[in-house]
Write a protein that binds this DNA or RNA. Sequence first.
DNA 1: GCAAAAGTGTTGGGAGTACACCCATGA
DNA 2: TCATGGGTGTACTCCCAACACTTTTGC
Lengths: 237, 237
Amino acid sequence: MPHSPAGYDATGYPPFAVTVDLVVLTIHDGAFSVLLVRRGAEPFRGRWALPGGFVHADEDLLAAAERELAEETGIADRAVHLEQLATYGAPDRDPRMRVVTVAHLALVPQPLTPVAGSDASDVEWQPVEPLLARPDELAFDHAHVLADGVERARAKLEYSPLATAFCADEFTVADLRRVYEIVWGTALDPRNFHRKVTGTPGFLEPTGRTTAGERGRPAVLFRRGPATLLHPAMLRT
Amino acid sequence: MPHSPAGYDATGYPPFAVTVDLVVLTIHDGAFSVLLVRRGAEPFRGRWALPGGFVHADEDLLAAAERELAEETGIADRAVHLEQLATYGAPDRDPRMRVVTVAHLALVPQPLTPVAGSDASDVEWQPVEPLLARPDELAFDHAHVLADGVERARAKLEYSPLATAFCADEFTVADLRRVYEIVWGTALDPRNFHRKVTGTPGFLEPTGRTTAGERGRPAVLFRRGPATLLHPAMLRT
DNA sequence: GCAAAAGTGTTGGGAGTACACCCATGA
DNA sequence: TCATGGGTGTACTCCCAACACTTTTGC
Protein backbone atom coordinates (compact mmCIF):
# COMPACT_ATOMS: atom_id res chain seq x y z
CA MET A 1 0.00 0.00 0.00
CA PRO A 2 1.26 3.50 -0.77
CA HIS A 3 0.01 5.05 2.47
CA SER A 4 1.78 4.12 5.67
CA PRO A 5 0.82 6.21 8.67
CA ALA A 6 3.70 6.68 11.01
CA GLY A 7 4.11 4.30 13.89
CA TYR A 8 2.50 1.30 12.28
CA ASP A 9 5.12 0.12 9.84
CA ALA A 10 7.20 -1.53 12.49
CA THR A 11 4.52 -4.01 13.46
CA GLY A 12 3.92 -4.83 9.85
CA TYR A 13 0.18 -4.93 9.37
CA PRO A 14 -1.50 -2.96 6.61
CA PRO A 15 -3.22 0.31 7.55
CA PHE A 16 -6.87 0.82 6.67
CA ALA A 17 -9.28 3.70 6.62
CA VAL A 18 -12.58 2.79 8.26
CA THR A 19 -15.81 4.55 7.36
CA VAL A 20 -19.49 4.16 8.16
CA ASP A 21 -22.03 4.36 5.36
CA LEU A 22 -25.75 4.78 5.96
CA VAL A 23 -28.69 3.21 4.18
CA VAL A 24 -31.42 5.56 5.42
CA LEU A 25 -34.83 4.30 4.31
CA THR A 26 -38.26 5.88 4.53
CA ILE A 27 -41.61 6.10 2.75
CA HIS A 28 -41.46 9.27 0.67
CA ASP A 29 -44.32 10.31 -1.62
CA GLY A 30 -45.69 6.78 -1.55
CA ALA A 31 -42.41 5.19 -2.60
CA PHE A 32 -39.86 3.17 -0.64
CA SER A 33 -36.94 5.61 -0.74
CA VAL A 34 -33.33 6.02 0.31
CA LEU A 35 -31.39 9.13 1.29
CA LEU A 36 -28.58 9.94 -1.15
CA VAL A 37 -25.97 12.67 -1.33
CA ARG A 38 -24.28 13.98 -4.44
CA ARG A 39 -20.52 13.64 -4.32
CA GLY A 40 -18.56 16.87 -4.62
CA ALA A 41 -15.13 15.32 -5.02
CA GLU A 42 -13.37 12.64 -7.02
CA PRO A 43 -13.74 9.79 -7.41
CA PHE A 44 -17.33 9.55 -8.64
CA ARG A 45 -17.70 13.35 -8.54
CA GLY A 46 -21.29 14.36 -9.26
CA ARG A 47 -22.62 10.84 -8.73
CA TRP A 48 -25.07 9.89 -6.03
CA ALA A 49 -23.79 8.00 -3.01
CA LEU A 50 -24.90 6.82 0.39
CA PRO A 51 -24.15 9.29 3.19
CA GLY A 52 -21.22 8.35 5.36
CA GLY A 53 -17.82 9.35 6.62
CA PHE A 54 -14.74 8.38 8.54
CA VAL A 55 -14.91 6.83 11.96
CA HIS A 56 -13.14 9.10 14.41
CA ALA A 57 -10.13 7.97 16.36
CA ASP A 58 -11.96 7.41 19.65
CA GLU A 59 -15.42 6.64 18.37
CA ASP A 60 -17.40 3.42 18.40
CA LEU A 61 -18.90 2.26 15.11
CA LEU A 62 -22.51 2.78 16.13
CA ALA A 63 -21.66 6.19 17.54
CA ALA A 64 -20.08 7.16 14.24
CA ALA A 65 -23.23 6.07 12.42
CA GLU A 66 -25.40 8.10 14.80
CA ARG A 67 -23.20 11.15 14.28
CA GLU A 68 -23.32 10.85 10.51
CA LEU A 69 -27.07 10.36 10.60
CA ALA A 70 -27.47 13.51 12.66
CA GLU A 71 -25.16 15.46 10.40
CA GLU A 72 -26.86 14.39 7.20
CA THR A 73 -30.49 14.43 8.23
CA GLY A 74 -30.72 16.49 11.39
CA ILE A 75 -32.30 13.49 13.07
CA ALA A 76 -31.23 12.98 16.64
CA ASP A 77 -31.95 9.81 18.55
CA ARG A 78 -35.69 10.13 18.15
CA ALA A 79 -38.00 7.43 16.95
CA VAL A 80 -35.36 6.04 14.65
CA HIS A 81 -34.13 2.53 14.17
CA LEU A 82 -30.40 2.17 13.55
CA GLU A 83 -28.52 -1.10 13.28
CA GLN A 84 -25.35 -2.44 11.77
CA LEU A 85 -25.91 -3.93 8.34
CA ALA A 86 -22.68 -5.44 7.00
CA THR A 87 -19.08 -4.55 6.25
CA TYR A 88 -17.59 -4.13 2.79
CA GLY A 89 -13.87 -4.23 2.19
CA ALA A 90 -13.00 -5.31 -1.34
CA PRO A 91 -9.44 -4.14 -1.97
CA ASP A 92 -10.41 -1.99 -4.96
CA ARG A 93 -13.71 -0.59 -3.73
CA ASP A 94 -12.15 2.85 -3.35
CA PRO A 95 -9.58 3.68 -6.06
CA ARG A 96 -7.62 5.97 -3.77
CA MET A 97 -6.78 3.67 -0.90
CA ARG A 98 -7.81 0.72 1.18
CA VAL A 99 -11.14 1.59 2.81
CA VAL A 100 -13.32 -0.74 4.82
CA THR A 101 -16.82 0.55 5.38
CA VAL A 102 -19.23 -0.60 8.05
CA ALA A 103 -22.68 -0.06 6.56
CA HIS A 104 -25.61 0.72 8.85
CA LEU A 105 -29.32 0.59 8.23
CA ALA A 106 -31.59 3.40 9.46
CA LEU A 107 -35.38 3.44 9.22
CA VAL A 108 -36.95 6.85 9.72
CA PRO A 109 -40.46 8.27 9.57
CA GLN A 110 -40.88 10.80 6.80
CA PRO A 111 -41.84 13.91 8.82
CA LEU A 112 -38.60 13.66 10.80
CA THR A 113 -36.25 14.29 7.88
CA PRO A 114 -35.79 17.93 6.93
CA VAL A 115 -32.22 17.24 5.74
CA ALA A 116 -31.06 20.23 7.71
CA GLY A 117 -27.61 21.66 7.50
CA SER A 118 -26.97 20.64 3.93
CA ASP A 119 -27.52 22.11 0.53
CA ALA A 120 -30.88 20.68 -0.46
CA SER A 121 -29.84 20.10 -4.05
CA ASP A 122 -27.11 17.73 -2.90
CA VAL A 123 -29.17 15.60 -0.53
CA GLU A 124 -32.40 13.94 -1.57
CA TRP A 125 -34.74 10.99 -1.26
CA GLN A 126 -34.81 8.67 -4.24
CA PRO A 127 -37.05 5.63 -4.77
CA VAL A 128 -35.09 2.42 -4.29
CA GLU A 129 -36.58 0.39 -7.14
CA PRO A 130 -35.00 2.31 -10.04
CA LEU A 131 -31.68 2.32 -8.18
CA LEU A 132 -31.78 -1.44 -7.71
CA ALA A 133 -32.52 -1.84 -11.40
CA ARG A 134 -29.63 0.42 -12.48
CA PRO A 135 -26.83 -0.25 -10.00
CA ASP A 136 -24.24 1.70 -11.95
CA GLU A 137 -25.83 5.00 -11.01
CA LEU A 138 -24.41 4.86 -7.50
CA ALA A 139 -20.81 5.51 -6.51
CA PHE A 140 -18.44 2.84 -5.18
CA ASP A 141 -20.18 -0.43 -4.29
CA HIS A 142 -23.12 1.48 -2.85
CA ALA A 143 -25.67 -0.24 -5.09
CA HIS A 144 -24.65 -3.49 -3.49
CA VAL A 145 -24.88 -2.01 -0.01
CA LEU A 146 -28.29 -0.55 -0.82
CA ALA A 147 -29.56 -3.89 -2.10
CA ASP A 148 -28.45 -5.58 1.12
CA GLY A 149 -30.10 -2.87 3.21
CA VAL A 150 -33.39 -3.07 1.33
CA GLU A 151 -33.45 -6.83 1.64
CA ARG A 152 -32.70 -6.61 5.38
CA ALA A 153 -35.51 -4.10 5.86
CA ARG A 154 -37.98 -6.20 3.90
CA ALA A 155 -37.09 -9.29 5.87
CA LYS A 156 -37.29 -7.52 9.22
CA LEU A 157 -40.85 -6.38 8.63
CA GLU A 158 -41.86 -10.02 8.81
CA TYR A 159 -40.74 -10.84 12.30
CA SER A 160 -40.24 -7.47 13.99
CA PRO A 161 -42.47 -4.46 14.59
CA LEU A 162 -40.05 -2.26 12.65
CA ALA A 163 -42.67 -1.18 10.13
CA THR A 164 -43.80 1.27 12.82
CA ALA A 165 -40.43 3.01 12.46
CA PHE A 166 -41.69 4.37 9.15
CA CYS A 167 -44.84 5.79 10.78
CA ALA A 168 -45.39 8.93 12.78
CA ASP A 169 -45.91 8.73 16.54
CA GLU A 170 -49.59 8.02 16.05
CA PHE A 171 -50.88 6.07 13.08
CA THR A 172 -53.80 4.00 11.90
CA VAL A 173 -53.86 0.36 10.93
CA ALA A 174 -54.27 1.47 7.32
CA ASP A 175 -51.13 3.63 7.60
CA LEU A 176 -49.21 0.62 8.81
CA ARG A 177 -50.64 -1.58 6.09
CA ARG A 178 -49.56 0.88 3.42
CA VAL A 179 -46.02 0.69 4.79
CA TYR A 180 -46.01 -3.06 4.35
CA GLU A 181 -47.51 -2.81 0.90
CA ILE A 182 -45.01 -0.21 -0.29
CA VAL A 183 -41.94 -1.88 1.18
CA TRP A 184 -42.88 -5.36 -0.02
CA GLY A 185 -44.55 -4.27 -3.22
CA THR A 186 -47.51 -6.55 -2.57
CA ALA A 187 -51.19 -5.97 -1.86
CA LEU A 188 -52.50 -7.10 1.50
CA ASP A 189 -56.08 -7.85 2.50
CA PRO A 190 -57.15 -4.95 4.74
CA ARG A 191 -59.51 -7.11 6.82
CA ASN A 192 -57.05 -9.87 7.60
CA PHE A 193 -54.21 -7.36 8.13
CA HIS A 194 -56.29 -5.48 10.66
CA ARG A 195 -57.12 -8.60 12.62
CA LYS A 196 -53.52 -9.76 12.52
CA VAL A 197 -51.77 -6.62 13.78
CA THR A 198 -54.35 -5.79 16.42
CA GLY A 199 -54.26 -9.39 17.61
CA THR A 200 -50.47 -9.62 17.95
CA PRO A 201 -49.66 -8.79 21.59
CA GLY A 202 -47.39 -5.81 22.13
CA PHE A 203 -47.37 -4.68 18.50
CA LEU A 204 -49.81 -1.77 18.77
CA GLU A 205 -51.16 0.27 21.67
CA PRO A 206 -54.45 2.14 21.23
CA THR A 207 -54.30 5.81 22.05
CA GLY A 208 -58.05 6.17 22.47
CA ARG A 209 -58.16 8.82 19.75
CA THR A 210 -59.51 8.42 16.24
CA THR A 211 -58.99 10.15 12.94
CA ALA A 212 -61.55 12.66 11.70
CA GLY A 213 -62.23 14.74 8.63
CA GLU A 214 -61.29 12.03 6.16
CA ARG A 215 -63.41 9.96 3.89
CA GLY A 216 -65.11 6.94 5.39
CA ARG A 217 -65.38 5.70 8.90
CA PRO A 218 -62.87 7.19 11.36
CA ALA A 219 -59.96 4.90 12.25
CA VAL A 220 -58.56 4.24 15.70
CA LEU A 221 -55.09 5.74 16.27
CA PHE A 222 -52.31 3.56 17.66
CA ARG A 223 -48.74 4.02 18.78
CA ARG A 224 -45.86 1.49 18.83
CA GLY A 225 -46.19 -1.22 21.45
CA PRO A 226 -43.42 -2.73 23.58
CA ALA A 227 -43.01 -5.91 21.52
CA THR A 228 -39.60 -6.45 19.96
CA LEU A 229 -40.42 -9.68 18.13
CA LEU A 230 -43.65 -10.60 16.40
CA HIS A 231 -45.42 -13.83 17.29
CA PRO A 232 -46.71 -14.98 14.94
CA ALA A 233 -44.77 -13.30 12.14
CA MET A 234 -46.33 -11.31 9.32
CA LEU A 235 -46.27 -13.21 6.04
CA ARG A 236 -44.95 -11.63 2.88
CA THR A 237 -47.08 -13.71 0.54
CA MET B 1 -19.90 15.57 4.59
CA PRO B 2 -19.25 12.13 3.32
CA HIS B 3 -15.78 11.11 2.29
CA SER B 4 -13.59 14.07 3.02
CA PRO B 5 -13.34 16.22 -0.09
CA ALA B 6 -9.64 16.92 0.21
CA GLY B 7 -7.00 14.26 -0.27
CA TYR B 8 -6.75 11.74 2.49
CA ASP B 9 -3.05 12.11 3.06
CA ALA B 10 -3.14 15.80 3.70
CA THR B 11 -6.07 15.85 6.10
CA GLY B 12 -5.09 12.70 7.92
CA TYR B 13 -7.71 10.14 8.71
CA PRO B 14 -7.46 7.90 11.75
CA PRO B 15 -5.53 4.73 10.87
CA PHE B 16 -7.05 1.40 11.85
CA ALA B 17 -5.88 -2.17 11.90
CA VAL B 18 -8.48 -4.51 10.43
CA THR B 19 -8.69 -8.16 11.43
CA VAL B 20 -11.01 -11.07 10.80
CA ASP B 21 -12.07 -13.28 13.71
CA LEU B 22 -13.71 -16.65 13.25
CA VAL B 23 -16.54 -18.25 15.19
CA VAL B 24 -16.05 -21.85 14.04
CA LEU B 25 -18.87 -24.03 15.31
CA THR B 26 -19.37 -27.78 15.20
CA ILE B 27 -20.89 -30.68 17.11
CA HIS B 28 -18.04 -32.21 19.11
CA ASP B 29 -18.60 -35.13 21.48
CA GLY B 30 -22.31 -34.40 21.56
CA ALA B 31 -21.84 -30.75 22.50
CA PHE B 32 -22.28 -27.57 20.49
CA SER B 33 -18.68 -26.40 20.41
CA VAL B 34 -16.45 -23.58 19.20
CA LEU B 35 -12.84 -23.64 18.06
CA LEU B 36 -10.55 -21.64 20.37
CA VAL B 37 -6.84 -20.88 20.34
CA ARG B 38 -4.70 -20.09 23.35
CA ARG B 39 -3.00 -16.73 23.05
CA GLY B 40 0.79 -16.81 23.17
CA ALA B 41 1.36 -13.08 23.40
CA GLU B 42 0.15 -10.10 25.36
CA PRO B 43 -2.46 -8.89 25.85
CA PHE B 44 -4.52 -11.74 27.30
CA ARG B 45 -1.52 -14.09 27.12
CA GLY B 46 -2.56 -17.64 28.00
CA ARG B 47 -6.27 -16.89 27.63
CA TRP B 48 -8.52 -18.54 25.08
CA ALA B 49 -9.56 -16.52 22.06
CA LEU B 50 -11.29 -16.89 18.74
CA PRO B 51 -8.93 -17.65 15.87
CA GLY B 52 -8.24 -14.74 13.57
CA GLY B 53 -5.67 -12.40 12.15
CA PHE B 54 -4.93 -9.31 10.16
CA VAL B 55 -6.46 -8.72 6.76
CA HIS B 56 -3.72 -8.53 4.18
CA ALA B 57 -3.15 -5.44 2.09
CA ASP B 58 -4.76 -6.75 -1.09
CA GLU B 59 -7.20 -9.23 0.36
CA ASP B 60 -10.96 -9.17 0.50
CA LEU B 61 -12.59 -9.73 3.88
CA LEU B 62 -14.11 -13.09 3.02
CA ALA B 63 -10.84 -14.24 1.48
CA ALA B 64 -9.05 -13.32 4.69
CA ALA B 65 -11.56 -15.36 6.67
CA GLU B 66 -11.08 -18.35 4.36
CA ARG B 67 -7.32 -18.08 4.70
CA GLU B 68 -7.49 -17.93 8.48
CA LEU B 69 -9.88 -20.85 8.57
CA ALA B 70 -7.52 -22.92 6.44
CA GLU B 71 -4.53 -21.93 8.57
CA GLU B 72 -6.20 -22.72 11.87
CA THR B 73 -8.15 -25.83 10.99
CA GLY B 74 -6.68 -27.22 7.79
CA ILE B 75 -10.13 -27.00 6.28
CA ALA B 76 -10.15 -25.92 2.67
CA ASP B 77 -13.30 -24.87 0.84
CA ARG B 78 -15.00 -28.22 1.40
CA ALA B 79 -18.49 -28.69 2.77
CA VAL B 80 -18.13 -25.66 4.97
CA HIS B 81 -20.42 -22.71 5.47
CA LEU B 82 -18.70 -19.37 5.94
CA GLU B 83 -20.47 -16.03 6.20
CA GLN B 84 -19.86 -12.60 7.62
CA LEU B 85 -21.27 -12.19 11.11
CA ALA B 86 -20.77 -8.63 12.33
CA THR B 87 -18.08 -6.03 12.90
CA TYR B 88 -16.77 -4.91 16.29
CA GLY B 89 -14.86 -1.71 16.73
CA ALA B 90 -15.13 -0.32 20.24
CA PRO B 91 -12.22 2.09 20.69
CA ASP B 92 -10.77 0.19 23.65
CA ARG B 93 -11.39 -3.37 22.52
CA ASP B 94 -7.66 -3.89 21.98
CA PRO B 95 -5.43 -2.10 24.49
CA ARG B 96 -2.55 -1.80 22.02
CA MET B 97 -4.19 0.14 19.21
CA ARG B 98 -7.35 0.80 17.30
CA VAL B 99 -8.50 -2.52 15.83
CA VAL B 100 -11.73 -3.16 13.98
CA THR B 101 -12.52 -6.83 13.54
CA VAL B 102 -14.89 -8.31 11.02
CA ALA B 103 -16.19 -11.48 12.64
CA HIS B 104 -17.18 -14.41 10.47
CA LEU B 105 -19.25 -17.48 11.24
CA ALA B 106 -18.12 -20.93 10.05
CA LEU B 107 -20.11 -24.14 10.46
CA VAL B 108 -18.08 -27.29 9.94
CA PRO B 109 -18.74 -31.04 10.20
CA GLN B 110 -16.71 -32.66 12.93
CA PRO B 111 -14.69 -35.17 10.88
CA LEU B 112 -13.25 -32.35 8.78
CA THR B 113 -11.34 -30.62 11.55
CA PRO B 114 -8.01 -32.18 12.43
CA VAL B 115 -6.63 -28.78 13.51
CA ALA B 116 -3.56 -29.46 11.41
CA GLY B 117 -0.51 -27.28 11.38
CA SER B 118 -0.86 -26.08 14.94
CA ASP B 119 0.26 -27.23 18.32
CA ALA B 120 -2.68 -29.32 19.48
CA SER B 121 -2.48 -28.07 23.04
CA ASP B 122 -3.09 -24.53 21.85
CA VAL B 123 -6.10 -25.18 19.63
CA GLU B 124 -9.18 -27.00 20.87
CA TRP B 125 -12.93 -27.41 20.72
CA GLN B 126 -14.81 -26.15 23.75
CA PRO B 127 -18.54 -26.41 24.44
CA VAL B 128 -20.22 -23.07 23.96
CA GLU B 129 -22.62 -23.17 26.91
CA PRO B 130 -20.04 -22.79 29.70
CA LEU B 131 -18.34 -20.03 27.70
CA LEU B 132 -21.59 -18.12 27.33
CA ALA B 133 -22.17 -18.44 31.06
CA ARG B 134 -18.66 -17.18 31.95
CA PRO B 135 -17.87 -14.51 29.37
CA ASP B 136 -14.74 -13.31 31.16
CA GLU B 137 -12.84 -16.44 30.22
CA LEU B 138 -12.35 -15.25 26.66
CA ALA B 139 -9.93 -12.58 25.49
CA PHE B 140 -10.95 -9.18 24.12
CA ASP B 141 -14.70 -8.94 23.37
CA HIS B 142 -14.72 -12.47 22.02
CA ALA B 143 -17.43 -13.65 24.41
CA HIS B 144 -19.72 -11.08 22.85
CA VAL B 145 -18.73 -12.17 19.34
CA LEU B 146 -19.27 -15.80 20.28
CA ALA B 147 -22.72 -15.06 21.68
CA ASP B 148 -23.70 -13.30 18.47
CA GLY B 149 -22.38 -16.18 16.38
CA VAL B 150 -24.21 -18.80 18.41
CA GLU B 151 -27.44 -16.86 18.18
CA ARG B 152 -27.02 -16.42 14.42
CA ALA B 153 -26.41 -20.14 13.99
CA ARG B 154 -29.42 -21.06 16.11
CA ALA B 155 -31.64 -18.71 14.15
CA LYS B 156 -30.38 -19.89 10.78
CA LEU B 157 -31.29 -23.49 11.52
CA GLU B 158 -34.91 -22.42 11.46
CA TYR B 159 -35.16 -21.11 7.95
CA SER B 160 -32.12 -22.52 6.14
CA PRO B 161 -30.79 -26.02 5.57
CA LEU B 162 -27.56 -25.10 7.37
CA ALA B 163 -27.93 -27.84 9.94
CA THR B 164 -26.57 -30.15 7.26
CA ALA B 165 -23.29 -28.21 7.42
CA PHE B 166 -22.67 -29.95 10.75
CA CYS B 167 -23.21 -33.40 9.22
CA ALA B 168 -20.92 -35.58 7.15
CA ASP B 169 -21.53 -35.95 3.42
CA GLU B 170 -24.08 -38.68 4.08
CA PHE B 171 -26.26 -38.70 7.15
CA THR B 172 -29.51 -40.05 8.51
CA VAL B 173 -32.59 -38.15 9.57
CA ALA B 174 -31.71 -38.99 13.16
CA ASP B 175 -28.23 -37.50 12.71
CA LEU B 176 -29.81 -34.29 11.50
CA ARG B 177 -32.33 -34.29 14.32
CA ARG B 178 -29.54 -34.63 16.89
CA VAL B 179 -27.89 -31.55 15.35
CA TYR B 180 -31.05 -29.53 15.91
CA GLU B 181 -31.49 -30.87 19.42
CA ILE B 182 -27.90 -30.13 20.43
CA VAL B 183 -27.75 -26.66 18.88
CA TRP B 184 -31.13 -25.58 20.20
CA GLY B 185 -30.97 -27.51 23.44
CA THR B 186 -34.50 -28.81 22.97
CA ALA B 187 -36.00 -32.24 22.41
CA LEU B 188 -37.80 -32.83 19.12
CA ASP B 189 -40.36 -35.49 18.30
CA PRO B 190 -38.55 -38.00 16.04
CA ARG B 191 -41.70 -38.91 14.12
CA ASN B 192 -42.77 -35.38 13.29
CA PHE B 193 -39.19 -34.31 12.58
CA HIS B 194 -38.80 -37.12 10.09
CA ARG B 195 -41.95 -36.19 8.23
CA LYS B 196 -41.03 -32.52 8.24
CA VAL B 197 -37.53 -32.73 6.84
CA THR B 198 -38.30 -35.42 4.26
CA GLY B 199 -41.35 -33.44 3.18
CA THR B 200 -39.54 -30.11 2.69
CA PRO B 201 -38.59 -29.95 -1.00
CA GLY B 202 -34.88 -29.61 -1.71
CA PHE B 203 -33.75 -30.13 1.88
CA LEU B 204 -32.58 -33.74 1.63
CA GLU B 205 -31.71 -36.04 -1.26
CA PRO B 206 -31.84 -39.80 -0.74
CA THR B 207 -28.66 -41.64 -1.66
CA GLY B 208 -30.34 -45.02 -1.95
CA ARG B 209 -28.04 -46.44 0.71
CA THR B 210 -28.93 -47.30 4.29
CA THR B 211 -27.02 -47.70 7.51
CA ALA B 212 -26.15 -51.18 8.75
CA GLY B 213 -24.59 -52.76 11.79
CA GLU B 214 -26.29 -50.53 14.29
CA ARG B 215 -29.09 -51.22 16.71
CA GLY B 216 -32.60 -51.10 15.37
CA ARG B 217 -33.97 -50.78 11.88
CA PRO B 218 -31.49 -49.44 9.29
CA ALA B 219 -31.93 -45.79 8.39
CA VAL B 220 -31.96 -44.31 4.92
CA LEU B 221 -28.91 -42.15 4.16
CA PHE B 222 -29.33 -38.67 2.71
CA ARG B 223 -27.12 -35.91 1.41
CA ARG B 224 -27.74 -32.14 1.32
CA GLY B 225 -30.32 -31.04 -1.22
CA PRO B 226 -30.23 -27.94 -3.41
CA ALA B 227 -32.60 -25.84 -1.30
CA THR B 228 -31.18 -22.65 0.14
CA LEU B 229 -34.26 -21.59 2.10
CA LEU B 230 -36.70 -23.82 3.93
CA HIS B 231 -40.42 -23.61 3.22
CA PRO B 232 -41.97 -24.05 5.64
CA ALA B 233 -39.39 -23.23 8.31
CA MET B 234 -38.39 -25.53 11.16
CA LEU B 235 -39.81 -24.40 14.48
CA ARG B 236 -37.63 -24.08 17.55
CA THR B 237 -40.38 -24.80 20.04
C1' DG C 1 -78.92 7.81 0.06
C1' DC C 2 -74.40 6.57 -1.68
C1' DA C 3 -69.50 5.94 -1.73
C1' DA C 4 -65.66 4.95 1.00
C1' DA C 5 -63.05 3.27 4.47
C1' DA C 6 -63.02 0.75 9.18
C1' DG C 7 -63.82 -3.26 11.34
C1' DT C 8 -66.23 -8.33 12.37
C1' DG C 9 -67.87 -13.24 11.34
C1' DT C 10 -67.34 -17.38 9.06
C1' DT C 11 -65.44 -21.08 6.55
C1' DG C 12 -62.11 -24.16 4.47
C1' DG C 13 -57.34 -25.63 4.04
C1' DG C 14 -52.47 -26.25 5.25
C1' DA C 15 -49.28 -27.18 8.74
C1' DG C 16 -48.17 -28.17 13.57
C1' DT C 17 -48.49 -31.36 17.88
C1' DA C 18 -49.29 -35.53 20.18
C1' DC C 19 -49.25 -40.12 20.12
C1' DA C 20 -50.77 -44.94 18.62
C1' DC C 21 -48.88 -48.01 15.65
C1' DC C 22 -46.02 -50.84 12.31
C1' DC C 23 -41.18 -52.21 10.33
C1' DA C 24 -36.49 -54.08 10.34
C1' DT C 25 -32.58 -55.15 12.47
C1' DG C 26 -28.97 -56.94 16.47
C1' DA C 27 -28.50 -59.69 20.40
C1' DT D 1 -38.31 -63.16 21.39
C1' DC D 2 -37.16 -58.75 22.96
C1' DA D 3 -35.09 -54.28 22.82
C1' DT D 4 -34.03 -50.51 19.89
C1' DG D 5 -34.45 -47.26 16.79
C1' DG D 6 -36.66 -46.09 11.87
C1' DG D 7 -40.71 -44.74 9.78
C1' DT D 8 -46.28 -44.12 8.94
C1' DG D 9 -51.25 -42.96 10.12
C1' DT D 10 -54.44 -40.15 12.35
C1' DA D 11 -56.99 -37.00 15.21
C1' DC D 12 -56.99 -32.45 16.97
C1' DT D 13 -55.67 -27.63 16.95
C1' DC D 14 -54.24 -23.24 15.32
C1' DC D 15 -53.38 -19.88 11.93
C1' DC D 16 -54.21 -17.96 7.61
C1' DA D 17 -56.59 -16.73 3.03
C1' DA D 18 -60.86 -15.56 1.15
C1' DC D 19 -64.84 -13.07 1.25
C1' DA D 20 -69.64 -11.81 2.82
C1' DC D 21 -71.24 -8.55 5.95
C1' DT D 22 -71.87 -4.55 9.31
C1' DT D 23 -70.47 0.19 11.04
C1' DT D 24 -69.53 5.06 10.65
C1' DT D 25 -68.24 8.83 8.48
C1' DG D 26 -68.15 12.75 4.15
C1' DC D 27 -70.65 14.35 0.30
